Simulated scan of single mutants.
Amino acid sequence: MPLSNVKTETSMAGLVKQILQGNAAILADGEASALVAQVQAYEQRSIQEPLKESTLRGSKEGFVENIRANQSLIRRRIVHADLKMEAFTIGEYTQTEVALVYMQGLADGEVLASVREKLRGIELKGVIDSAYIEEWIENNSFSLFSQIQNTERPDIVSASLLQGKIALLTDGTPFALVLPVTLWSGLQSADDYFERFVFVLLTRFIRYVMTFISFALPAIYVALTTFHPEMVPSNLMISIATARENSPFPTVIEVFLMMFVFDGLQEAGVHLPNQLGPVVSIIGALVIGQAAVEAGIISTPIIIVISLTGVAAYTIPRYSATLPFRLLRYILLFITGLLGFVGFAYGIIFLLIHLVMLESFGTPYLSPLAPFDGRRIKDLFVRYPFWMRGGKNQKGRQS
């Protein structure tokens, strides 16, 4: 039969499932099995550039909602027999197809076995998005930090597979899951591997510093101006005190109010249409901030601190990676507002303890920094040239 996929089915339940999925069943008198022909045709979105993970250089293709199209995008990039894809069906009513993708010989066998066991143990009435599977199989669901990376870029998935990682493709969603991951995975952009390596050192340094600023700056400002003003230069402290002279609220309340308003405007911008979202976020912040300063409710330095904090958060390449730091911002501000720099130090220490103890499918979340691994440290702060990463290319370049 001139069809791309024809297989046999021996059980009645399996045959009914195939028919409900839009396949054609061919029954012959006297035969104990039926032929199932894949003839279903669904309306699907064309392959477009990913909106959430755009890059200046590199592929402009993104995953779509069709799992077959997503599998083809990966197979076109990795043309090797070691690329394996295992199919799972999850969801009592949705019967959603999930593909476990890995490179045989590169992926860790124990991690593969663990993922298979967790996928078989999922008991859900339906799977609408890959987020359903992500929350089910991750090791620590109560941690602020996700132990599974989601992406809609096939080039990121392909590069991760070549590093020995595992990917999960879910039918009906353009977001693939990649595991295991580390903290640094969410802070690295695809452009880091498409631009010249000499510039990546500067961009990563800026990104890491801005990440720290995005959750620590408000707390540091409160600690300096409220508990430890002697640490601030006299002229600067006089300017801050003069600006806050007519403010009716303590510094920590001012910072909390502006952070809450800024996050509210940001959330509104996310859910508004693409043409209105950025306008509402930017103009709304400017108008509300200026009006609050003129009314004497908020002091000018608070506007500067919150604005810098918000801009710093935008340097993180992936939106999902910004969410833990947004919540940490409030936690650190609360502790620092009670205890000053002592509370800030406690917060940072407990954060480091949690990150050191956290694992993603057996991989320490802070690796290769903790525990230290000199072989993998090359891709943490400095993106070494590809010809220095070992293998045949290194020999050829050195010779």
Results as ranks from 00 to 15, higher is better:
Leu202Val: 10
Thr203Gly: 05
Thr203Lys: 09
Ile206Ser: 03
Val209Phe: 11
Val209His: 02
Val209Trp: 05
Phe212Glu: 03
Phe212Leu: 14
Ala216Thr: 14
Leu217Ile: 15
Pro218Cys: 06
Pro218Gly: 13
Pro218Leu: 10
Tyr221Gln: 06
Leu224Lys: 11
Thr225Gly: 06
Thr226Asp: 08
Thr226Pro: 04
Glu230Trp: 13
Pro233Asp: 07
Ser234Pro: 04
Ser234Gln: 04
Ser234Arg: 01
Leu236Met: 08
Ser239Thr: 07
Ser239Arg: 12
Thr242Glu: 07
Thr242Val: 05
Ala243Arg: 07
Ala243Gly: 14
Arg244Cys: 00
Glu245Cys: 02
Asn246Phe: 15
Asn246Trp: 13
Ser247Trp: 04
Pro248Phe: 09
Phe249Pro: 09
Phe249Trp: 09
Ile253His: 00
Ile253Thr: 06
Val255His: 04
Phe256Ile: 02
Leu257Cys: 06
Met258Ala: 05
Met259Cys: 08
Met259Trp: 08
Met259Lys: 00
Phe260Lys: 15
Val261Thr: 09
Phe262Cys: 12
Phe262Trp: 08
Gly264Met: 06
Leu265Val: 02
Leu265Phe: 11
Gln266Ile: 09
Gln266His: 08
Glu267Leu: 14
Gly269His: 10
Val270Gln: 13
His271Cys: 05
His271Asn: 07
Pro273Cys: 09
Asn274Val: 00
Gln275Leu: 12
Gly277Phe: 01
Gly277Cys: 12
Pro278Met: 05
Val279Leu: 12
Val279Cys: 00
Val280Asn: 07
Val280Gly: 07
Ile282Cys: 00
Ile282Tyr: 03
Ile283Ser: 15
Gly284Glu: 03
Gly284Gln: 04
Gly284Tyr: 07
Leu286Ala: 02
Leu286Trp: 01
Leu286Tyr: 00
Gly289Gln: 03
Gln290Thr: 12
Ala292Ile: 00
Ala295Leu: 11
Ala295Lys: 05
Gly296Glu: 06
Ile298His: 04
Ser299Pro: 05
Thr300Phe: 14
Pro301Met: 10
Ile304Gly: 04
Val305Ala: 11
Ile306Asn: 08
Ser307Ile: 10
Ser307Trp: 02
Leu308Glu: 15
Leu308Ser: 10
Leu308Thr: 15
Val311Glu: 15
Ala312Asn: 02
Ala313Phe: 05
Ala313Ser: 15
Ala313Cys: 03
